Amino acid sequence: MTWQTQRLPGDHPPARSGKIGVMLVNLGTPDGPDPDSVRRYLKQFLSDRRVVEIPPIVWQIILRGIILNTRPQKSSKAYSKIWTERGSPLADITARQAEAMAKTFVARFGETVVVEYAMRYGKPSIESRLTALMAEGCDRILIAPMYPQYCAATTATVFDEVARVLGQMRWQPALRFVPPYHDDPGYIGALAEDLTRQVRGLSFKPEVMLLSFHGMPQQTLEKGDPYYCHCMKTARLLREALEVRPEFSGVRFETTFQSRFGPAAWLEPSTDATLIAEGGKGTKRLVVAAPGFAADCVETMEELALEGRDEFIEAGGEDYAVLDCLNTSGDGLVMIETMLRRELSGWI
């Protein structure tokens, strides 16, 4: 009898070693704005038991029988409105964040540090990037989930996937993970500086500023997930940093949650209902910031900037603006570099 051994990533040592890898990870995006690409993406995303906690035997019937037959058409229209020549804005911005960090680290440390990016769902996958980093000679790797606020449906899924990939490897790298940074002074400071700059450039002075975070089912809070508390702390610290600045004098701050999906109770108040209510009660000038997103995406560029504008204006509002996420702004890149260098302490 001849025994054959399956070759898995990490079975054999890389030709080189001694380098340090850094991998920025964001949620993910379809390969294209067409319904088929969106369907493939949603199937992977919504099949994650961290994302949807309904028992699989029930959820898969709903997912395959209803959602994947209806939602891709609607979502593809939203993606089509924001798609660029460089593809998905989320993937493009995350790639440019990684490119900026790569240039910075090469300038400071030479070829010792290799920076990559990955998407938790879609491409480039965590598995492909981890394998590439090891092939490059990285035996120490820092994983940076680009989610300021911890949530099991986002941050924990990165841990899960990294563990799954490493479970196939005989020779595993040493790993570190960047912790949630919802209350990091560098993050709050970067947000405050960048948002102040953007508000200063508006043609109107806002009466109200919404701090809109991605929504989650209410049960996540009831089960002990810290996400809601992290969002509220970010909102409080950011409000305290902004309200002392002349650009925000007299501005009323509200914290809301967007992107509700399905019939279950979600975190409140909802962003769309708040926009309609503000317009209805006489608010004329309103801005929205999304401090839960490290990069602009369909939720900010389509849901907030386009759908949100229509909701507010139709309800009686007049001036409306959605401010950019930190993206590749100077303040944002300094914040990412500072955070990475802190977590790399002792390795570099």
Rank of each mutant, 00 (worst) to 15 (best):
Y181C: 13
V208K: 06
V178Y: 01
V113L: 13
I66M: 02
A295Q: 04
S80Q: 13
I57M: 11
S88N: 01
M301H: 00
V22Y: 03
Q258I: 12
I141M: 09
Q97N: 11
R129H: 02
W347I: 07
R252Q: 10
L46N: 01
A192P: 00
M335I: 01
A192K: 02
A235L: 08
R170I: 08
T94E: 12
A152I: 13
I276T: 15
Q73G: 15
Q218I: 04
K233W: 10
C229T: 05
T196W: 00
S270R: 15
E268G: 14
M232L: 15
P173D: 06
G280F: 12
K223A: 12
D296M: 01
N327D: 04
V244F: 02
M169C: 08
R120K: 09
A100H: 04
T84L: 12
D92C: 08
D31V: 12
P173S: 07
A315L: 15
A235Q: 11
P173E: 05
L42H: 09
I82R: 04
L202K: 11
Q168F: 15
G346M: 04
R342C: 01
A98L: 13
E247D: 06
I143K: 07
L8W: 00
A265H: 05
Y228L: 05
F105M: 14
L27K: 06
D139K: 03
R170P: 00
E278T: 07
K205Y: 12
F293L: 02
V115H: 14
Y150W: 13
L68Q: 05
P179T: 09
G201K: 00
Q97W: 12
A235K: 11
L130R: 07
G308D: 10
L142Y: 03
V208R: 09
R7N: 02
T300Y: 11
A163P: 00
G167M: 09
H182I: 07
A163M: 14
I62G: 09
Y227I: 02
R96H: 15
S249V: 01
A153S: 13
M146I: 07
W347L: 08
G280D: 14
T112W: 04
H12C: 05
I141P: 08
P180W: 08
C297K: 00
S259N: 10
V25E: 04
A264T: 13
T256A: 06
H214D: 06
L8A: 01
C229I: 00
V251Q: 05
Y228A: 12
D225I: 03
